[in-house]
Amino acid sequence: MSSISCRNLCRTFHQGDEVITGLDHVDLDIEEGEFVCLSGPSGSGKTTLLNAMGGLDTPDEGEITVGKYRVDKLSKNELAEMRLHDIGFVFQAYNLIPVLSAIENVEFVMQVQGIAAADRGARARAILAEVGLQGLEDRRPGDMSGGQQQRVAVARAIVNQPALVLADEPTANLDTRSAAQFMDLFVALNRQHGITFVISTHDTRVMAYARRLIRMRDGRIVADEQQEPHGMAV
């Protein structure tokens, strides 16, 4: 499902009279099980490309295929269905639902999917333990630190073992140790379960984990390189 194909993607934004180019004729293929970093300065189009792949935003032109889905052709409901079952999102801001506890946040997607309570409870507890949040299951986001919240967000993204995880600056608000833990977890999931990761970042420490590094500037892909991942020194 996770092979991604983008053809001639264009996206512009209007800010007053100014036209900002988000994506400028982007062509890209990502194979199933790849661990890819999109890098580049702010405004280079990383987040716009991620949003387009996840069906959160619709390009002005071009085609996107994610697995069996022609993303640019799907209705709102079909996009929601695709995101619900096949894609895990991690955002820069922790983006948890404030009225739900940590475990309820992790269970959220499974609940919408209709997974039985006992099953989703067990899976949520296990994944929270895996991200080091054992004992904090019943805390609300307001009672957790930024790092703990981001761990919950990651747990939520991967608990269902989606085929594709799209992460937008996932370590931007984390200290080096937490960032390293997350990246190690992502790499492990990629290796063990074949989950495809596409991570946007301008953090060189994160880029070091990627086997494929795509550099963007002004909405274009300016470099697309394979590399030997070497992790980050903590």
């Binding site: 269905e81 695709m82 619900l84 959220f108 997607v109 919408v112």
Partner: peptide, 16 residues
Amino acid sequence: VREIGLMQALGMPPSL
């Protein structure tokens, strides 16, 4: 609004 956007991003359909 952000929370609603988040729920949509996570796959909650508009009807829900």
